[in-house]
Amino acid sequence: MIGVENLRIRFGDVEAVRGISFAVAKGESFGIVGESGSGKSTVLRAIAGLNRNWEGRILFDGEPMAPQRPRSFFRRVQMVFQDPYGSLHPRQTVDRQLAEPLMIHGIDGIDTRIVRALDEAGLAARLRFRYPHQLSGGQRQRVAIARALIADPEVLLLDEPTSALDVSIQAEILNLLADLQRARRLTYLLVSHNLAVVTHLCPLIGVMQAGEMVERLTVEALRAGHITHPHTAQLRRLALELEEV
């Protein structure tokens, strides 16, 4: 569904992504884990078409993508960001924000779709005409997810979708993402610094460090400690330390 081949991204003199490759099959989830500055979000933004300055190949459904994406691409691929407060329009109601992607893509039945999207994202119907500041952090992230899904995309790009949330709310959002993936056969590409979060949703993982994907492995291999790169081992050890309370 998504393929990345020898992707390189440069900001001035700094090479943020240094020739990485991976592929995500339809209906699969691939997780990229790494620390700040490892280049993980930069990869996601290039795939989303938010950064047109890259070299290498990005394939979608087997087709190489040009840096400038056609509108039809955004109907099929959507992104959810870390901070729903920053990604939602502060002066638009939930209703307005959910209607916008439908209007852009010329999709009919706006009213029924909004009602269904709210329900699917676990949001009460009474929240439809609220503004973002009237919602809790978890509710805002549910709105961002509802908005990403309202035009029926096939792929969700998730950039630290639960990092700004309390752990109890994180659990709710992770459950929601798992349910939605099953119900809609979505393809996920998830980026996070939290190894446990990534392994919860993704059976396949790529570990990034300093712009390189230093290791790709299955969750089973990671759990069993079948690891080749020291950075993967270090991230695993730190995650385990906090689990042994």
Partner: peptide, 11 residues
């Protein structure tokens, strides 16, 4: 709070 976070070793 202890049970909510996902766990690497206990999926």
């Amino acid at each position: 709070l202890l049970l909510c976070p996902p766990s690497l070793m206990r999926p």
